[in-house]
Design a binder for these strands. Structure first.
Lengths: 235, 235
DNA sequence: CCGGTACTGTGCAATATTGAACAGTCAGGA
DNA sequence: TCCTGACTGTTCAATATTGCACAGTACCGG
């Protein structure tokens, strides 16, 4: 009995997608948001372009239509921590809804990205007016929360080696199925280090180790083999 | 300009309470929840008693009326990580709303605790039927999310010494104002270690260091001096 | 072709952290 | 009163991690 619990936990964050009970998160929020109207604008960003910066006034929720976005926070000594990598269908900047006056982090496009910028007041209006949208948004927030809690637990428990393995697998999930899966090429070892809270040299060390063991392969693009799971699962 | 951003960030999680724009989280959810009806029951737990355990089927959202609750996750090797310490007015178990079939963690009362257990279906019904409740719940989830993200960033950036200082200050916020504030007495060094992801001996080491420096004082009850902030803020 | 801008690949000494052990305290229950 | 359980105080050697530094590569724009 204990062992089944254990198995469940050690695979945390690696479960297959499950259906949400307040509605699937894969719905198209665009339907509710992009009919022409006040308080909604489209933004386009090139790779590496900043969507908003830490300290900017927080006044809009942003919905990703296409591309990818990195959410990060910068330290007093310039060290960067990556809080999340987001993709189409994800929201960010939603903290302003809770009254957060300024952005606590920086959002950067990692590939060419199209977003919908929804002003706070408009977002609240839609949340109030559209039941279905409100449900989906709650479901989305709940899942984000679960994901961040898993990341936190991962940090509390695991060595940087395991954290790297888990992060790679998580990123690989976005790739197409197959035995060796593609992972977005725009993740540098530096960024990986910032995601798992260690140094680039450590990431480099483990990446080479994983490669030697045949768990991953890379040459600009990183390919993750399912066997990498053994690193996460092992004692 | 950079320096003001920096200051803001280094004090993350230590800001004063701010008013939420979807409504204050300090509202009394009880008003919406405890009128007699199906799907709602009251639960009472003694200190250290388990409210639900990791692996249990997840089918209710729980609202704390009185007391305090520790949310934790256990490792494959029995190591424990504390995800959150919750208090009256907080919800937990809400992940079931997103379709999570089993509890990913264990909820334990840390003091005698009274909770309202709301079945998932009932919770969804209230969320749908009561606009105000739905708003407040969204606001609550947004703030929980902000808090967990801050904890994650803290882990990514800071040494265990700083994390301990921050955690103590955060817990101290629950005490009454004054120059030396009380912190809930039921937090052992062991629990602190599980919250910041280190070992008890490390916590013990820093606690003694902080005491020698006059930042804290303890003898069963921990008293935190505002000067402890210098540990968190210092480069 | 050149310089600049990312990156990766290494190595290494200085530190920080772990894990485990053992003694001591304190409170409550039998 | 004695026991037990839940804590704190303190070591210490084995490891893991950090923070550099420097070389090498690949791509881009002028």
């Amino acid at each position: 009995m204990v062992s089944t619990q254990v198995r469940r936990v050690s695979a945390q964050g690696l479960r297959s997608p499950k259906k949400a009970h307040l509605g699937s998160t894969a719905f198209n929020a665009k339907l509710f948001l992009d009919s022409t109207g006040l308080g909604r604008t489209v933004g386009r960003y090139a790779a590496r372009e900043t969507i908003f910066a830490q300290g900017d006034p927080a006044k809009s929720v942003i919905y990703i239509q296409e591309g990818g976005v990195k959410l990060s926070v910068v330290n007093e000594v310039g060290k960067e921590a990556v809080v999340a990598i987001l993709r189409p269908g994800d929201f960010f900047g939603e903290a302003c809804l809770a009254g957060q006056p300024v952005c606590m982090g920086t959002a950067t496009a990692i590939t060419p990205t199209t977003v919908l910028v929804i002003e706070k007041s408009e977002m609240i209006r839609v949340l109030h007016g559209e039941h279905e949208f409100s449900d989906r948004f709650i479901a989305y927030m709940l899942e984000r929360n679960i994901r961040v809690e898993e990341d936190l637990v991962d940090q509390l428990f695991n060595s940087s080696e395991k954290r790297l393995a888990r992060t790679l697998l998580l990123l690989a999930r976005y790739g197409l199925p197959g035995h060796t899966q593609k992972i977005l090429p725009n993740v540098s070892q530096e960024t990986l280090a910032e995601m798992i809270g260690t140094t680039r040299s450590r990431v480099n060390f483990f990446m080479n180790k994983f490669r030697k063991l045949g768990f991953i392969d890379y040459d600009g693009q990183i390919r993750v083999n399912d066997s990498l799971l053994s690193v996460v699962l092992h004692d």
